[in-house]
Amino acid sequence: MARVSARLAAVEWYCAGLLLCVVFLLLLLNVVTRSLGSPLIWVDELAIYVMIWAALIGASIGIRNRDHIAMTLLTDMLPVGSRRALLIGVDAALLVFFAILGVILWNWFDPVGVLAAETLAEFSQKSFNFIYEEPTTTIAMRKVWFWLILPAFFLSGTLHAAANLATRLRGGEGER
C-alpha cells in the first residue's frame, strides 16, 4: 500500500505543478487582455476552479508526506510509547474523517439515483439535488466537472492515510 501511495503522490506532484502553471498562465492572460481593454471574464472563474483542484491535490500530497501543520507540544512531552499511540490515533482519526467525507460525497453525488433516473432533469426534480445541472457563472460548463476533484481527493487521501497508518502500525515513520 505504501508503494501505491508513493506512486500516486508522484503523479499528484506532477498534476499539482501543471495546474499551478495553468493558474499562472490564466492570470497572465487576464492581465494582458485587461490591459488591452478586452478582459475575458471567464478567466477569473476558471483560475479559481483550477486553483481549488491544485489545493486539494496538494492537500493529498501533504497527507502522504505528513507535512501539514501540527501542534507538537503535547506529543513532544510524551514518552515514546504514549507518543506512538497518540500518533496512531491521529492517523486513525484522519481515516475516520475520510470515511465521513466518503458518506457525504456518496449522498451528494448519489450515483445510484442518477443511474436509476431516466434524465438528469428527472433526477434533479425528484431529489432536489441539482449538482449535475448547475452551470458555472461564466464558463458555460456544469459545475459537476469541477466538483469531481472531491471524490478524487477522497480516494487519494484515504489511500495516503491508510498507508500512513499501516506504516506507523508496523513501527515505521517514527515521530512525524
Results as ranks from 00 to 15, higher is better:
Val23Trp: 01
Pro135Lys: 08
Trp106Glu: 15
Ala10Phe: 11
Gln125Met: 13
Leu74Glu: 03
Ile48Trp: 04
Arg64Met: 02
Leu46Cys: 03
Arg176Ser: 04
Leu28Ile: 11
Asp67Cys: 08
Leu73Thr: 09
Tyr14Ala: 10
Gly113Leu: 11
Arg7Tyr: 11
Val80Arg: 11
Val23Ile: 08
Ala16Ser: 04
Leu20Ile: 12
Phe128Tyr: 10
Phe154Pro: 03
Leu8Met: 09
Leu87His: 00
Glu134Lys: 13
Leu169Asp: 05
Leu27Arg: 05
Pro79Ser: 12
Phe97Pro: 08
Asp67Val: 04
Leu26Ile: 05
Ala162Val: 13
Trp13Val: 15
Ala161Trp: 01
Arg64Tyr: 00
Pro79Gly: 12
Ile131Gly: 06
Leu40Tyr: 02
Leu148His: 10
Pro79Ile: 06
Glu175Asn: 04
Ser35Met: 04
Thr33Leu: 04
Ile52Trp: 06
Leu36Val: 03
Ile61Lys: 00
Ala117Phe: 00
Arg66Glu: 00
Val22Ala: 03
His160Glu: 03
Arg64Pro: 02
Pro151Ser: 06
Ile63Gly: 00
Trp42Lys: 02
Val4Leu: 15
Ile139Gly: 07
Arg84Gly: 03
Lys126Phe: 10
Leu120His: 11
Gly89Met: 07
Trp147Ala: 08
Val90Lys: 08
Asp91Leu: 14
His160Cys: 06
Glu134Tyr: 11
Met77Pro: 06
Met51Gly: 03
Ser5Pro: 05
Phe24Met: 15
Lys143Arg: 09
Ser60Phe: 02
Ile88His: 08
Glu175His: 04
Leu18Arg: 07
Thr33Lys: 03
Ala2Val: 12
Pro39Thr: 00
Trp106Thr: 13
Gln125Lys: 15
Met77Thr: 14
Ala59Gln: 01
Arg170Cys: 07
Trp42Ile: 03
Asp76Glu: 12
Ala55Lys: 03
Ala47Arg: 01
Arg142Cys: 08
Leu27Thr: 09
Leu94Asn: 04
Gln125Gly: 10
Glu173Trp: 06
Val32Gln: 01
Ala92Leu: 15
Glu133Thr: 13
Leu73Ser: 08
Thr138Leu: 05
Tyr132Leu: 08
Leu101Asp: 13
Ala85Gln: 11
Cys21Thr: 14
Phe153Gly: 01
Ala161Arg: 01
Arg142Glu: 09
Thr158Pro: 00
Met71Pro: 11
Pro151Arg: 04
Cys15Trp: 09
Trp53Lys: 02
Arg66Gln: 02
Val23Pro: 00
Phe130Pro: 03
Leu165Val: 07
Leu155His: 04
Met77Ala: 09
Asn65Thr: 09
Leu28Ala: 06
Gly81Ser: 13
Arg84Thr: 12
Leu46Thr: 02
Ala163Tyr: 03
Ile100Asn: 12
Thr136Arg: 01
Arg3Asp: 14
Arg168Glu: 02
Ala16Met: 12
Arg7Pro: 07
Ile52Arg: 08
Leu29Tyr: 07
Arg168Lys: 12
Gly81Arg: 14
